[in-house]
Amino acid sequence: MDVIWIAVVALGAVGFLLAVVLFVASKKFAVHEDPRIAQVSEVLPQANCGGCGYPGCAGFAGACVKAADAGTMEGLLCPVGGAPTMENIAKILGQEIISAAPKVAVIRCNGTCENRPRVAEFDGVRSCRVQLMLGTGETGCAFGCLGCGDCASVCMFGAIHINPETGMAEVDEAKCTACGACVKICPRRIIELRPKGPKSRRMAVLCVNRDKGAVANKVCKVSCIGCGKCVKVCAFEAITMNSNLAYIDPEKCKLCRKCEDACPRGAIHAINFPARKPKAAEETSSAQVGKKVAIDERPSKSIETNA
């Protein structure tokens, strides 16, 4: 019997002692944390992608609380959760709801194997950064997609993959959270986060070639040659021309699609618009084969993913 008593008393004593130690420690070393940070963290997606620019979701929650105390949460956006998440955070912190337009990564290059002939064969580590060191790379274009998939490897949502047929990166809009990891990694700065637009419809110049027209024309069938026709035709001053390259400002663009028709190269794309009536398609000249292929291909694919 004694043995049992001794064991019970000894263990009890040890347990009590440790409990006292833990109690003292928890009081003495307590770290005060704003309870709202935990609340905000709860509504965040917990993907810890860093897309917001902060080290993980906890960091972002801290920044939100700090900003709310300072007055406004403007400029803070969780790209993964988007507007609904931001609304929840605003509610917790008693802030006005700020609506930011949802964005999506757009690969501004359409230099598929067909449109942009390969002039050399790359042999080495399949990494865009490695190929970049060889100058223009496999194609003659010094600006376009290298197709080695650095963007696909950093995408945590599996939203980018390299299409083996075109040799190009493609974005799955349904999965893209606009975290911006691909934008940062792309050594040629091709990927841009653009507003999704109403019904996911948007206009974009799918080319970043800043070479002069003659060179751009030679290296790729669907390159922007900086002719400026789109600038002239745009009624809203949404298109600017900078070093031989057109750029559509998504804020100003009214989606009238005039620039698309005006572009002689098929570099401007209307994304996710319903297919045009056959009559309009016939009018386009035979010289724009590349453009037709691209247009036909993109909407049909994106509609599937959006459905």
Binding site: G124, V125, S127
Partner: peptide, 13 residues
């Protein structure tokens, strides 16, 4: 192994 390919990207970064 393409050691130098990778080392170059590291070095330039």
């Amino acid at each position: 192994r393409a050691l130098l390919d990778n080392i170059r990207t590291g070095k330039s970064t």
